[in-house]
Design a protein around this nucleic acid. Sequence first.
DNA 1: TCCCGAAAGTGTTTTAACGACACTAAGGTA
DNA 2: TACCTTAGTGTCGTTAAAACACTTTCGGGA
Lengths: 240, 240
Amino acid sequence: MSGEHRNDPERRKDRIASEYHLAVSVDCVIFGYDEEGLKVLLIKSDTPDYQGQLSLPGDLVHPTENLKNAASRVLEYRTGLTDVYMEQVLAFSEVDRHPAGRVITIAYYSLVEIDEYAAQKHSRMEAEWYDVNAIKELAFDHKAILDNCLTRLQLRLREKPIGFELLPDKFTLKQIQHLYEVVLGVKLDKRNFRRKLKSLNVLEDCGERQKAVNHRPAKLYRFNMEKYQKKKKKGMFMNF
Amino acid sequence: MSGEHRNDPERRKDRIASEYHLAVSVDCVIFGYDEEGLKVLLIKSDTPDYQGQLSLPGDLVHPTENLKNAASRVLEYRTGLTDVYMEQVLAFSEVDRHPAGRVITIAYYSLVEIDEYAAQKHSRMEAEWYDVNAIKELAFDHKAILDNCLTRLQLRLREKPIGFELLPDKFTLKQIQHLYEVVLGVKLDKRNFRRKLKSLNVLEDCGERQKAVNHRPAKLYRFNMEKYQKKKKKGMFMNF
DNA sequence: TCCCGAAAGTGTTTTAACGACACTAAGGTA
DNA sequence: TACCTTAGTGTCGTTAAAACACTTTCGGGA
């Protein structure tokens, strides 16, 4: 960890040596959600050492784009989606993490509505959705990347209203509660959850109800950004 | 932001082109604390475009080290200190952020005890401590880096006991309260703060008191890691 | 040695959030 | 029309947080 502490001679970033070989990539943890649980979009690696193993979609960063652009490009290539919630998480940099050479990668996660994805399915798409809890290993250090992104997602879900990014525009209270339960891995009390959510004043009643269910249909709600912007204040959002 | 979304042809990270020129650096936000407030260690840039302006210590990442090693190396070079609390924060990657070429930088912050630093002062040291609140601009995008690191520090200070890293081994309750006040930028109630801190059970009474003060001397405390490890549970630590 | 200044140290009361908990309402189906 | 299934709703006890003032202890100076 803090083993090699030589007092190096002066080095300056403005001396960018031409023999300096090091590549930078982005890797994308693309989360989706359906009734079964939290999903992540994975591809099969074609790197020899990890042939056929599941891995995260990613790519080298082009010289003319920043990291966010690169991550958006990868996301669009794999899902056809743009304007998606996305956040940078962490850089992974172990010297031997990639068999083909020195590659530092920056992890992003994003939240997509899984049905919208299906509709705009990319023709060359090899990617598929996998249940997050069922994933035991991935190629490279991608399992660690996934774990970090999931932890970050859980943190954010507690502190601001991003769960909506994973749901259709109109959703029931049961859906949003179930989403919180599966993403955070906790069981929540229906009445307390609803009380809390209503007190935050970020939901708008659509005036519609579920259709074609053989029981009392639930009201549909929509997330209202204006309400949130006004109400947002310091502190936690949903601290379970 | 999400402007250029071309559907690129397949690109793979294992095809690492030799013409691929892009450098990676680390930049270190080294925080210190004394009675006056929160400080950060800065140097004067010698990059032509920013000649003489204040900037964060940093360096290119060597081919044989990971990012944390690189950040530790920079830290030791500037302060002489090893085994310091350090956390990766965010990568900064705007294409034009560095005048000498394409450099992606990963920001780390670390917490050092400012007096310990002074004692082991590096002979060639050009770095100096500056009050964080007095810094209005820095070279490159370093002000944004500083702001991000400060925000991260504030978050961590609320969720786990890292304030101790900025203080001497033995400290008074007033010192730790003042640290929380200046880092978080809030005013805290003495009795409530002490009650909360004691309830967390992470402090150990040294059995000593302040010396040579012309008023009632305060007890000295020490942070006890074992107590913390046992007691640590989910949720916030100090939610002010 | 007595008085003063200055910071240390200590509890109680009020208020807000959280957790636990069970019944009635509404629609679909047989 | 009876029944199945999920929707929807309120109260009470517990716990955490915020507000708030006086006594103690030491050093220094008269």
